[in-house]
Design a binder for these strands. Structure first.
Lengths: 197, 197
DNA sequence: CAGAAAAGTGAACATAAATTCATTTCTTGA
DNA sequence: TCAAGAAATGAATTTATGTTCACTTTTCTG
């Protein structure tokens, strides 16, 4: 039954993502993934050629999903400022709901291949923001600025705020919506002429 | 000779820092450190109880040095805005000159102990910025804001801009001073009412 | 239903890297 | 100078983990 094949593959991916989200790449050994997925280690190698390729797929799939949502926002209606604030808030809100992606995204994995994929993904995120920023500068909503640098700073800012020492896992349950608002306001102000509030 | 003892210890630390700076924690095995320092692996264990403790010391020493410089700036003269811009520029300039610390700082090391030290260090950096921001808000230079979140965002912003896909190691030699200026302007705007330029 | 093919298994293997320790080399003080 | 203790060595050991493969179980087909 090819349903089972597909379902197994999916289960392995889900298990791998779960482990990464909970303990980073460090906790996601093949044996642990196999256990979590309810299969044997050998089975994993029937579906994925190597640990590295498995995790590249985990990472890119998660990022692809996020990128699509952000892209919708970036290409949608509203001023550049509104779209930027919406994009940052949307990402951080989902990250806080279950900080899956955020961890996978910041952790430095052992395998160079996965690391390379991570860098590519960060670039993709940056590109989404570059588009919004370009619109904003063209419409004279935002001042002239180095778009590459601003985009990288935005990605870094919200990532650190989510998983760094401030992040929800480190301190007691601070108000999540307040944190989301603080982060997105920071990012909007950072590329604007004035705070706007 | 106890001079030699101290000098050996120092050589090991320097060698470890060099390897981390060049290839991240991944490249810094005990054997490599021993080779770089010109001692045997056994000798390293005469000076450090474990690999983890060696790298905790490497990390905290490097960060301590940076923190002191930033603290000077934070406690020095000038408006909060000026001090913030100077602090960010100072850090990024040194990081670009030899991206030692920046890499050590972002890389996820294998050992949980080192990872914990990294989080603590990020917190320390954040605290420096919190002080500047608090001054600025008190003097009504900056609008009211979540200081913890802003500080984390600042640390994340410049870190990502330095070592992420934008960083000097990824693209051709863009103008370093221009990058420094872009990053620090981003951070200052992000906490200010207006861009100020 | 039998037999072939596919899928699944997990113990065994391979590899890499940290740590140890029996042995050697060096330093010091009588 | 020499013995005693400290320091250094690096091959051997341990540990951790990715990968393989001979074998078992399941599924499909004539």
């Amino acid at each position: 039954m090819e349903e089972r094949l597909a379902s197994n593959r999916e289960r392995i991916l889900v298990a791998a993502r779960k482990l990464v989200s909970e303990g980073g790449f460090r906790e996601a050994q093949i044996a642990a993934v196999a256990n979590e997925a309810g299969v044997s280690t050998g089975t994993i190698y029937r579906y994925f050629p190597s640990k590295a390729e498995l995790f590249v797929e985990v990472l890119t799939a998660a990022v692809q999903y996020e990128i699509e949502i952000l892209d919708q926002i970036a290409k949608g209606p509203g001023s550049a400022r509104e779209r930027l604030q919406a994009a940052v808030a949307s990402f951080t809100r989902r990250a806080l709901a279950g900080p899956y992606l955020a961890y996978a995204f910041i952790a430095e994995p052992a395998e160079p291949e996965v690391d390379a994929a991570r860098i590519r993904c960060r670039k993709q995120f940056g590109d989404v923001f570059i588009n919004i920023l370009r619109d904003g500068v063209a419409a004279d909503e935002f001042p002239e600025q180095d778009l590459d640098a601003s985009a990288a700073c935005i990605v870094g800012a919200y990532t650190e705020a989510l998983v760094g020492p401030i992040g929800p896992s480190r301190r007691g349950n601070r108000n999540k919506e307040a944190l989301i608002a603080s982060i997105s306001r920071f990012c909007v102000r950072a590329v604007s002429r004035d705070a706007g509030d």
